[in-house]
Design a protein around this nucleic acid. Structure first.
Lengths: 333, 333
DNA sequence: TCCTCGGATGTAAGCGTTTGCAGGGTTGGT
DNA sequence: ACCAACCCTGCAAACGCTTACATCCGAGGA
């Protein structure tokens, strides 16, 4: 920077001001500085700049399962807008309890980020106050977090739509593949969708039957395992609501391998769902990442930002994996 | 840091030495410092530390298509080991020419990273010298880059295996779905697999037929489109080699929708390939990311590191999407 | 003509670490 | 008892920027 200043015949202060586009630099000086910087192919050291200014130009992103499709989409969406504004994105994967404890114990985000994005994570009070102690704005995707901005869908309503679809086809024995279990108080989405399942059945006068609800780890394997177990029941379900398309894929796999026929509805509209003809509830995931990042930017640049809330629509997408209860085989095509 | 030093009754220098685990601090002092830091819940500012030490603790990762499965896996694999050593990962997506030009024009990695990981990218001489000017070690995944470390498979041999499999089933009219085209000199993998296709057919005495080779954009859509075009030929292929599983998924989709039957073999062993019963060539992608990150670490910590080369094995995975040429329908199951 | 006001620059004090160098004890060999 | 050789520790100078504050200068206004 000194070299540039010398070449342009100004002080480093003026160079700094020019390079950051501050207003009070004369056109003529600006030109000379830019040219000097260009000819020396100089770029500011982001690290020094961050130390001096106190702004990190980095946002922390906290996800529970980085490799799942949903989270990948969110992160990709957020990344696309952050990159555009040359903000760095620091990803933290808090999949298991130890990782979580380590994270909140050390709080490695301290002094490292200007804002935080959390994706489908529920926090305890202690964790929440740790987060707040960072002193930066927080935006949550997928669920409401007190004091934070929020981009989400109405999980309960959307899941209810899925169950209603099955009810509308005449199904009464409706199973659910869920990732929720009593130890995992950390999965608000799983909780909401499961609640919708229970309540929608109740509203339709269908008695709740615990053996039709499978709790499994997320992913295709989990879905396959859940469906296999459902099929071993004395009276298996005629339709199944899977908490996510990936679980549904596993369920379809189990059905294909066993040659059985059960209606399956998923949730998300994964990019491969069309190929597998999976009926599902579509939500625009990538876009939620984009919107959340936009909200983050607003939060970082607006001094008196107050949490915004965005509710995204969902759509029931009808495909060939669900059919009326009377029919025992899918009307393929 | 000053507070900690005061509380522990030592200088900031000693605090710094203690917190970084340097050897020349007495056990007793170390204990006091650690306790003081603990009680003040103090963590060092990575930014100040980086400025002072000159080490960024960050590795730059350059990919052409961040959202594709393959690249996602590589990044996830690398991330898992980098995070473990508390190294940051800065992701750059250089999908299109403008992004690429901007990147090499500004070289935003300058002064920002201690090492670089490039994934399946080919560089021009100018780009290569720009990369070298960063003065940090480089590791490439998926293809050889002069002067850089390398983790890859033998693309030509693996693709040849796929084509030989089809030949072995008696197929002569073998199509290929490729992402290679003459403008995209930047896709070494596409190039290698296409070359293997041409050479393997030639070695088997099967004449090359240009109309059987489709060049499409990557992804399911591209695969679907390619297969549809192949099916409109007067004499369509009886088998198709897709450059990746995602392209193959698209091809399967087209086949399903048109009710036609063509053997399809993919490449990668995507996690959904088993569900779709896709014959494919398996490579361990996540692991390649892990190994590459390990190599990066070695490069960063070893003063006289010289590029290593790792060749990973591939396996032909037989499933139900390929069958002998005589039979016109798959022997499902 | 004198004074005020505002925009363009320069000066220099941070920002919070790391690290070369020096000082001050100890230890052990002679 | 003396000195070299160590091990700990503290001092203070970077690291490469940003930014509050001071300075300078020309333009108006009275």
């Amino acid at each position: 920077m000194e070299d540039v200043a010398r070449l342009a015949g100004v002080s480093t202060a003026t160079v700094s001001r020019t390079l950051r586009g501050l207003p009070n630099v004369s056109e003529e000086t600006r030109g000379r500085v830019l040219q000097a910087a260009e000819s020396l192919s100089y770029v500011v050291s982001p690290i020094a700049s961050r130390l001096a200014s106190g702004r990190t130009h980095t946002v922390g992103v906290i996800v529970p399962y980085a490799s799942r499709w949903f989270f990948g989409q969110i992160v990709a969406g957020a990344e696309s807008v952050l990159r555009e504004h040359s903000l760095d994105l620091l990803l933290y994967n808090l999949g298991d309890i130890p990782a979580r404890q380590r994270f909140f114990g050390q709080l490695p985000l301290r002094r490292r980020v200007d804002a935080v994005l959390t994706v489908a994570m529920q926090f305890t009070d202690a964790e929440m106050s740790a987060m707040r102690s960072l002193g930066v704005p927080i935006v949550a995707v997928g669920h409401h977090v007190p004091g934070a901005g929020c981009v989400r869908i109405d999980d309960v309503a959307a899941a209810a739509t899925a169950v209603q679809h099955l009810l509308g086809l005449g199904h009464k024995r409706i199973g659910m593949i869920s990732t929720y279990n009593d130890q995992s108080m950390f999965l608000p989405v799983a909780h909401a969708r499961r609640r919708a399942y229970v309540e929608t059945l109740a509203a339709a006068g269908v008695p709740f039957n615990g053996e039709l609800v499978m709790s499994v780890p997320h992913g295709m394997d989990g879905g396959e395992q859940a469906m296999r177990r459902l099929l071993t029941l004395a009276d298996p379900p005629t339709a199944v609501f899977a908490e996510s398309d990936e679980l549904a894929f596993g369920a379809l796999s189990a059905l294909r391998r066993t040659g059985r026929h059960v209606s399956v509805i998923g949730f998300d509209d994964h990019e491969l769902s069309a190929l597998l003809d999976l009926t599902t509830v579509r939500q625009r995931v990538f876009e939620q990442g984009v919107l959340a990042a936009g909200m983050l930017r607003r939060a970082m640049t607006t001094s008196d930002w107050s949490p915004e809330e965005l509710l995204m629509p969902t759509t029931l997408v009808l495909r060939a994996s669900t059919w009326p209860v009377a029919v025992r085989t899918p009307d393929a095509g």
